[in-house]
Amino acid sequence: MTILLVALGAALGAPLRYGADRMIQARHDSVFPWGTFTVNVTGCALLGFLVALPAGDEVMAAAGTGLCGALTTYSTFGYETLRLAEDGAKTYALFNAAASIGAGLGAAFCGMAVAQAVIGA
């Protein structure tokens, strides 16, 4: 049953990531990968929120592993960062790496804080 919940969450997360990435990137005339950055930070915030809730294993399988796992994309982050460096945009590559890690950790922390405020912890 758990694998079906993960698959269901991933079936929602992957097209959500693709659509959000394309929509966000289309609004920016920049080599910086704003779409990937945005979905990764959003996924970190959501996972931080979920982890801090008293959610059961089923919720974490579907929403945490499935949805957040498919919504976020480490491989695309890595590829886009290397592509920026190879194309001569080394400053953008360094900014992407540093900002993605910093914003992702910050978003996860904020997600956890919001969940704790909601449940009154």
Rank of each mutant, 00 (worst) to 15 (best):
T91K: 12
Q116L: 12
T2C: 01
G19P: 11
L71F: 13
N40C: 08
G69D: 08
L47C: 03
M1D: 08
V114P: 05
L105V: 15
F95H: 02
A117N: 10
R22S: 11
E58Y: 13
L105N: 11
Y74V: 05
A52I: 05
Y79M: 02
P33Y: 01
V118E: 06
L67C: 10
L5T: 06
A85S: 06
L67F: 14
G66V: 05
Q25H: 04
W34T: 05
M23G: 00
A108W: 04
L82I: 13
A10P: 03
M60R: 15
G69A: 08
Y79R: 02
P54K: 12
L53A: 11
A26K: 06
A89C: 09
L105T: 04
G48D: 01
Y18R: 09
P15F: 14
A97V: 14
K90W: 15
Q25I: 00
L4N: 08
T81K: 02
A115Y: 07
S100H: 05
G48V: 06
Q116S: 14
A10C: 13
P15W: 11
Y79N: 03
L67A: 07
C68I: 02
S100W: 04
G66N: 04
G64C: 04
K90N: 15
R27L: 09
A14Y: 12
Y18D: 11
D87A: 15
T91L: 13
E58K: 14
A103I: 13
A107G: 08
F32L: 01
A11S: 15
G48H: 03
I119A: 05
A26T: 06
C68L: 03
A121F: 11
R83P: 00
D21L: 10
A99R: 07
T91Q: 03
D87L: 10
A93T: 08
A10S: 11
